[in-house]
Simulated assay, not measured.
Amino acid sequence: MSLTVQLYTMLSMIGMGASLGAALDTYHRFLKRSERKRWLVFIYDILFWIVQALFVFYVLLLVNEAELRMYVFLALLCGFAAYQSLLKSLYMKVLNFLIHIFVQTFYFCVRVFQLFLVKPVTILIHLIIALALFLFRFLVGFGMGLWRFIIAILRLIWKFIFIPVRFVFFVIWKLLPNRVKIFIKRQAGFLKYVKKMKKHIFLIWERIKKKLGGPRK
Results as ranks from 00 to 15, higher is better:
Tyr107Cys: 05
Val112Cys: 06
Val112Met: 05
Gln114Ile: 09
Leu115Tyr: 09
Leu117His: 12
Val118Ser: 08
Lys119Pro: 03
Thr122Gln: 14
Ile123Lys: 09
Leu124Val: 01
Leu124Phe: 12
His126Pro: 02
Leu127Gln: 12
Leu127Met: 08
Ile128Phe: 14
Ile129Ala: 06
Ile129Ser: 03
Ile129Asp: 00
Ala130Trp: 04
Leu131Ser: 13
Ala132Thr: 09
Ala132Glu: 11
Ala132Asp: 09
Leu133Ile: 10
Leu133Arg: 04
Phe136Ala: 01
Arg137Glu: 10
Phe138Tyr: 10
Phe142Leu: 08
Phe142Ser: 07
Phe142Tyr: 06
Gly143Thr: 01
Gly143Ala: 02
Gly145Phe: 01
Gly145His: 03
Gly145Ser: 04
Leu146Trp: 09
Trp147Ile: 13
Trp147Pro: 03
Arg148Phe: 15
Arg148Gln: 15
Phe149Asp: 04
Ile150Met: 13
Ile150Asn: 13
Ile150Phe: 13
Ile151Phe: 15
Ala152Pro: 06
Ala152Phe: 13
Arg155Val: 14
Leu156Ala: 15
Leu156Arg: 08
Leu156Gly: 14
Ile157Ser: 14
Ile157Lys: 06
Trp158Pro: 01
Trp158Asn: 11
Trp158Leu: 13
Trp158His: 08
Trp158Cys: 11
Lys159Ala: 15
Phe160Gly: 01
Phe160Tyr: 11
Ile161His: 03
Ile161Val: 11
Pro164Met: 00
Val165Arg: 02
Val165His: 07
Arg166Cys: 02
Phe169Thr: 10
Phe169Ala: 15
Phe170His: 12
Phe170Met: 08
Val171Tyr: 09
Lys174Trp: 03
Leu175Phe: 07
Leu175Met: 15
Pro177Glu: 05
Val180Trp: 07
Val180Leu: 14
Lys181Ala: 03
Ile182Ser: 08
Phe183Cys: 08
Phe183Arg: 13
Phe183Pro: 00
Ile184Cys: 03
Lys185Pro: 00
Lys185Met: 07
Lys185His: 06
Arg186Lys: 06
Arg186Leu: 15
Gln187Thr: 07
Gly189Trp: 03
Gly189Asn: 11
Phe190Ser: 12
Leu191Arg: 08
Lys192Trp: 00
Lys192Tyr: 06
Tyr193Thr: 13
